[in-house]
């Protein structure tokens, strides 16, 4: 059984009416997407902005409610109520693109990392769990008392990773988790992600337009365009032998090192 499944997932956005007599325009962000993520695998969803990849990720982790379709996590249907979402929340960690805006500037590193423990009312010694998480992402324990503005971009994104794994989730979801960082930091975080995956047997769902990142971490690729999945398969196969013209176009557009 898949850890995470979507069936017929659809999300429409009703745009504001432009005139009184015209019917409102509906934008289809996602059109009937089916997806399965197996326990322990790393799946990357790729596509351009507007392809629906972030909408898909948001629906899968219960941050948004589908217009139609269902999401199942660990055999249970996830719906909009807080009660139904709790098991999913308990077992999910999230990392977003921008370590500058995703960390509360008024909280210390320790408080930021410990937030999921408080929000999910997880029993136990929070301080010890925070220390362990900082260690997992190789951040010096001395940084626990610091504030985000005192850290470098790479350290901030490590804090974001620590927050994502502090409650030992089974699923890690990243939305462009490395695109705001420079190349050296990216290489270090790529190693970190690989290690966390191994150590905690994490299932990983990545949303990215960064084929470099995807090539180095994903087992499976899902290519999206205009709210639909146009191709999916093993990362190795999709990148070596893309079937859909759009996938080919995407791969051809990537700048390469000589």
């Amino acid at each position: 059984m898949s850890l995470l499944s979507a069936r017929g997932l659809t999300r429409d956005h009703r745009l504001p009416r432009r005139t009184l007599f015209e019917a409102p325009v509906v934008r289809h962000a996602l059109r009937g997407v089916d997806l399965d993520v197996e326990q322990g695998e790393t799946v990357a969803v790729i596509g351009e902005s507007g392809s629906g990849k972030s909408t898909l990720a948001r629906l899968l982790i219960g941050l948004d409610v589908p217009t139609a379709g269902t999401v199942t996590f660990d055999g249970r249907t996830v719906s909009g109520s807080d009660r139904a979402l709790r098991p999913l929340r308990r077992d999910t960690g999230m990392v977003f693109q921008d370590p500058y805006s995703s960390l509360d500037p008024r909280m210390t590193v320790a408080r930021i990392v410990g937030e999921p423990l408080r929000a999910l009312r997880i029993p136990g010694d929070h301080r010890a769990m925070i220390t362990a998480a900082l260690e997992d992402v190789r951040l010096d324990a001395a940084l626990a008392a610091r504030y985000p503005h005192e850290l470098s971009g790479g350290q901030r994104q490590r804090v974001a990773f620590a927050r994502a794994i502090v409650h030992r989730p089974r699923l890690l979801v990243g939305d462009e988790p490395m695109s705001a960082l420079d190349v050296t930091v990216r290489a270090q975080l790529l190693k970190l992600l690989a290690r966390l995956r191994r150590e905690f047997d994490l299932t990983v769902l990545l949303v990215s337009h960064d084929l470099g990142l995807v090539q180095h971490v994903a087992d499976r690729l899902v290519v999206m365009r205009e709210g639909r999945i146009v191709e999916q398969g093993s990362a190795e196969r999709v990148l070596r032998d893309p079937q859909h013209p759009y996938t080919r176009e995407l791969i051809a557009a990537v700048p390469r090192l000589p």
Binding site: V183, L190, G212, Q215, H216, A235, V254, P255, R256, L257
Partner: peptide, 13 residues
């Protein structure tokens, strides 16, 4: 670092 993170044929996993 660029070679470890950027896209290239025959590299990576």
């Amino acid at each position: 670092a660029a070679r470890a993170t950027s896209f290239g044929a025959g590299e990576g996993s």
